[in-house]
Design a protein around this nucleic acid. Sequence first.
RNA 1: GCCCGGGUGGUGGAAUCGGCAGACACAGCGGACUUAAAAUCCGCAGACCCGAAAGGGUCGUGGGGGUUCGAGUCCCCCCUCGGGCACCA
Length: 895
Amino acid sequence: MPEIEKNEGQERYSPAEIEPRWQARWDADAELYRAEDPIAHAGGKPKFYCLEMLPYPSGQLHMGHVRNYSIGDALARFMWMRGYNVLHPMGWDAFGLPAENAAIKNNTPPREWTLSNVAAMRKQMRRMGFSYDWAGTEVTTCQPEYYRWNQWFFLRMYERGLAYRKSSKVNWCPQCCTVLANEQVVNGYCWRHEDTLVEQRELEQWFLRITKYADELLDGLDKLPGWPEKVRTMQRNWIGRSEGTEVEFGVGGDANEKQILRSAQDDNKKGKSGHAGEKIAVFTTRVDTIFGATSIQLAPEHALVKEWAANDSELAKAVETMIAEQKAAKETGDIGNIEKHGVPTGREAVNPFNGERLPIWVANYILADYGTGAIMSVPGHDERDFEFATKYGLPVKRVVAPASSGGASAAAEGAHADSGDLALPYLGEDDAVLVDSGEWTGEASLEAQETMGRFAEERGFGRRTTTFRLKDWGVSRQRYWGTPIPVVYCERCREKHSDDPNAGIVAVPESALPVLLPENVEITQEGGSPLAKLPGFVNTTCPKCGGPARRETDTMDTFVDSSWYFYRYVDAHNAQMPFDSAKVNYWFPIDQYIGGVEHAILHLIYSRFWTKVMRDLGMIRNDEPAERLFTQGMVIKDGAKMSKSKGNVVSPDDMIARYGADATRMYALFAAPPDRDLEWQEEGVAGVSRFLARVHRLVTKFAPVVRTVERGAQDDEITTKAFAAQTPAGANLLRTLHQTIAKITEEFSGRWHFNTCIAAIMILVNEMAAAEAKMDSGEIAAVTIAETARTLVLMLAPFAPFVAAELWEQMGERSGLLREPWPKADAELARESEIEVPVQVNGKLVVVVKLAADADEEAMKAVAQAEEKVRARIAGKTVVKTIVVKGKLVNLVVK
RNA sequence: GCCCGGGUGGUGGAAUCGGCAGACACAGCGGACUUAAAAUCCGCAGACCCGAAAGGGUCGUGGGGGUUCGAGUCCCCCCUCGGGCACCA
């Protein structure tokens, strides 16, 4: 053996000195970056695309980001060491309102403000040591190089009818001075302004036809087992598919004038039209209960109600009150708890199934924008209808009964709520059958839904249909800082084809892209698109006829930007196309996407939609963007989510300055498992920092040993195993080492409980510290220490890359840590030779005995029974039963 | 109201399969080192009771029941906190 030099470990751990030095080195030698084409140089390595959500460049990284990226970076580094070809990119969601607000406040142009924030945050991220390939993949969505492709996609969608313009009621936030998507309205309030109520305005807007993919977006969720069930459920609810039947009820005139009219059937036969032949379409998922309908309920906003209210001031007043009340309820937040009420319209509708005349009401619980805005009210089988009918004394009629009752509830006809068995509506079971339902009586409920739907279709007064809660995605924003919509409006073209309502809309040709967002724009809070005030931008020529035309002045929703940014990462500098399909097909789907659950429906549903559109354009092969999704918990401080308004924000810069980036990110992983909320406690960061100092001191001390051993090992060819066997203390240390490797490797590939990984590393370090003294006494071989120290540093690399790199170098290693293979656990070395077996009497712990790990059940039993404490406990009693679980425990049952 | 998560020492959390509850930390306490402090190192530490101590006993994972030799873990009922949806016909 060569002489072992010793380092007394005088150098103190100083992240402030270590971290910037390594950061500079990584920046300079681009260790973390792709020097060459990562696909061409994959060299047979499997690919791994590790993605974290790109941040909005507010100027400050917050703790939520730090946590998100610490998780992703640990995984990326681990996969790198496991020999994967890793793609780990980062970018900036750089368009959006805060830049405009900042412009108003500080008189700084949004571009300048945004880009300086990007620079500041990029610096923070580098300071954190995150392993992003800045040079190769960084994407900034507000750059024309990026947003021109938003425009390009928009044109592709427009060509295919996936982007269209229509006038409709839209959500308007008076604070943002812009339209919001449905997804951006939270309980009637703006998602950005918690106390600003969203108004409804009638405006011409651009929409993306996401509903075309509603079915696929829904069904695809079943094929995403790598996504959290919670997110999938949220998306299912959001898409809200229900299959049912639309049925047309014929409308009678004013009942007081005794102008009861024909049923819809008659109307259809005679092809009559006009007032008398008006129909009300209702949507129901339970057409089988149609014989139990006892009224028709319309939403206050229903077109017919408007018509009728025009000549009926009383009705008009009632409807107005209802709408006002709903608005008020939204403001207090308890919409949904609002009491059901309504007014009769004095008109009647005819049930096309049985010719029954039903009163038409207007009710406040009917939603105008779902289904047809009208329902058939079946109080016998719907809780809401029941509540309403009970209040107004409308009849409750049962038409479905459990099969077991033999359809015996006929007596219930016309009964009211106070009759015992009708105290609650019957909501149906799988075996329910129809009663009192004409020719369908006796038919199974589920079957009747089918046959009655078909019947309605045959007779021409209905159709089976599917409705969705999901609405098309309104993407127009009356704001400046976003992607210009690449469309012009031409008066001449419109007039030339006055029969086509879309004739005046002319797409900007692809060759003219990008439509650049002008600079030096005055931004005010007054509302209306700021671009509309720029004649130089607005006035243009029509690409079709060459005549004067007006540019679209709305910009795109920023969620367009984030819907496909992760595709751009794989080919960020492509000037010809959004990306090279071959590259996407190599990297996609994303192997792991990591982000906050707050994106569960907005970003994550739009991204899935965009993926399907691109697939149908033939650009990509994958149906879904990401194979696996992980949603991390929130960062909490003093029991509340960190936010400026609550004043409980902890700045990463402060943490770095005080404890270093390593300690900050390692604490973010240590304080809680990543899927749970994390309470930020500064003392905890200090603790991790102390731990790293301890590691630094220990490894620094052992580093010369490692260097010596590494040199010697080549000569002596002595295996670690052989050395380990020499001394019990050495075997113990190596056992812990290999148990730790096994533990961490397993967590990375499954549960991701990095808090327990770090705990395991701490245990190992504690044992190493204890081993220090034993090295001098010869109880532990130097090679054992060296092996342990070296492996420890490798395992630290995903969590604390700076100190790991520093120590790695101290140990005489020259290769970068990411190129070093992840250690392999040796099952033999990890195995326990001795186990502690608890001995119980009647399930209560009496004593713990030490046994050889391979002791069989007989031996365990014998040792347990021989134990003095156990004998004392069972003295004078009979052992009725002995339970022995090999390698686990012994339990004596006594009486 | 409905659907998901949680509830374990003073605190964050551990216990992956029903098998020693409280790993690993933080805060705390005691000791060593120091003129002193900081830093560091070593040790103690769920609660209650008995005992001078060594040690021993009882209780204990939100509450109540159950299954089991044995329950933080499984079943039923309930309380509570957080999140999502909320008249979706």
